[in-house]
C-alpha cells in the first residue's frame, strides 16, 4: 500500500496544521527551487507548489518532485484550465508514481488573467469534477472512462475556498460540494476581512462542514499599499478591505509598509487561530518564500 502523507496523518490526528506556498520560477534550474525550499523546510507540514498561476513556470509536478527530494512534503496543485481529463488523470498517475501524496484541485486563474492571454480555453472538467475523479481513482481504482488503474493509487485531495465570495448560501453550496466530492482539506484564499471570515467559518461549522474537512485559513503578507491595490484590482477572489490599504499607506515608506504588511499578517493569524473550525494556516507566499520562516516565528506557530 502507498504511504499515507504527513498532511493526512496530521488531519486525522487533529493537529494544528501549517502549510505554505512555493511559486516556482519560469526557469529550468532546479537549484532555484532548492534554494526556495530551504525557507520552507522547518515548520510547514506540507508545501503547495503553484500550477502556473500567472503564466508558464516550472511545472508544479516537477516542482513537487524537487521539494520531495529536498525532504519537504509537497501539495501538488493541479488546475483544470490547461489540461483536459486525459492529461489530468495521466499527470495524477505520474505524480503518484513519483511519490506525490497530496494534490490540490482547482480551476486556476483564467488564462486571460495570465501573461498568456491568447491561450486556448480548456476547462474540460471543473475543480469539483476533478476532486470527484481523484476520489473515484482512490476509492474504486478506476479512471473516468472506466479503465482499471494498474496497481495502487492513493493521494490525499484538497480544494480551495474563497470566504469572501457572496452570497454566503451559494458559497456554502460550493464548499459542501467540494467536500462531498472528496476534499479532505480546504485551503482558503488569503483572509484580510476578519469579520467576513468569521461569518463564513461560523456558517461552515453550523452546516457540519468543518467536521468533515480540515479548513486551513490562507494568509498573505502584503508588501505595500500599491501591491495590495493592484492585486485586488486584478483578482476579484482577493478581497482586501480599504482599512488594510489605509493602514499600509499610513505606515510610511516602502520598508515601513512591508513591515506593516507583515504585522497585519501576524495579527490575522493570531485572530484566525482562535476561531472554531479553523484547523490550520496556509501561508500564501506569492513567490516570497523567504518570508515564511519570519511569519512562522512571529506568529508563534
Amino acid at each position: 500500500m502507498p504511504q499515507i502523507s504527513k498532511l493526512e496523518t496530521m488531519i486525522t490526528a487533529g493537529n494544528f496544521i501549517i502549510t505554505a506556498e512555493f511559486l516556482p520560477l519560469p526557469g529550468a534550474d532546479s537549484k532555484a527551487a532548492e534554494t526556495a525550499s530551504g525557507f520552507l523546510k522547518d515548520r510547514p507540514a506540507a508545501v503547495n507548489v503553484a500550477d502556473n498561476p500567472h503564466g508558464p513556470i516550472l511545472s508544479s509536478l516537477a516542482g513537487s518532485v524537487i521539494l520531495e527530494k529536498s525532504g519537504i512534503e509537497p501539495v501538488y496543485q493541479i488546475v483544470t484550465r490547461d489540461r483536459n481529463r486525459i492529461a489530468l488523470q495521466s499527470d495524477l498517475l505520474g505524480a503518484a508514481a513519483l511519490g506525490i501524496k497530496n494534490v490540490l484541485c482547482l480551476s486556476g486563474h483564467h488564462q486571460t488573467l495570465t501573461g498568456s492571454r491568447q491561450s486556448a480555453s480548456v476547462y474540460d472538467i471543473d475543480s469539483i469534477q476533478l476532486l470527484a475523479a481523484v476520489k473515484q481513482m482512490n476509492d474504486d481504482g478506476v479512471l473516468l472512462d472506466g479503465t482499471k488503474i494498474a496497481g495502487d493509487f492513493k493521494v490525499l485531495a484538497g480544494a480551495v475556498a474563497t470566504p469572501d465570495m457572496k452570497p454566503l448560501e451559494l458559497n456554502m453550496i460550493r464548499l459542501t460540494k467540494k467536500v462531498a466530492a472528496g476534499a479532505r482539506f480546504i485551503q482558503t484564499q488569503a483572509v484580510f476581512d476578519l469579520d467576513a471570515f468569521a461569518g463564513w467559518i461560523k456558517k461552515a461549522n453550523q452546516l457540519g462542514i468543518t467536521s468533515k474537512t480540515a479548513i486551513l485559513a490562507g494568509v498573505m503578507p502584503l508588501e505595500s499599499a500599491a501591491e495590495a491595490e493592484s492585486l485586488r484590482e486584478k483578482y476579484t477572489d482577493l478581497v482586501i478591505p480599504d482599512s488594510v490599504i489605509d493602514r499600509l499607506k499610513a505606515a510610511g515608506d516602502a520598508a515601513a509598509q512591508a513591515k506593516e504588511g507583515m504585522a497585519i499578517c501576524i495579527e490575522t493569524i493570531k485572530k484566525i487561530q482562535s476561531l472554531d473550525g479553523v484547523r490550520g494556516i496556509h501561508i500564501l507566499s506569492g513567490g516570497k518564500e523567504h518570508r515564511v520562516p519570519e511569519i512562522v516565528k512571529a506568529a508563534g506557530l
Binding site: S107, H110, D126, S127, I128, V160, K166, I173, R174
Partner: peptide, 20 residues
C-alpha cells in the same frame, strides 16, 4: 461562465461581475 464550470462559481465570482 468564462471557465464553463458546471458545479458552481469559481472563487473570483462577485455579485456584480465576472472576474474575467
Amino acid at each position: 461562465c468564462a471557465k464553463q464550470m458546471l458545479n458552481g462559481p469559481c472563487g473570483g465570482s462577485r455579485e456584480d461581475r465576472c472576474e474575467v
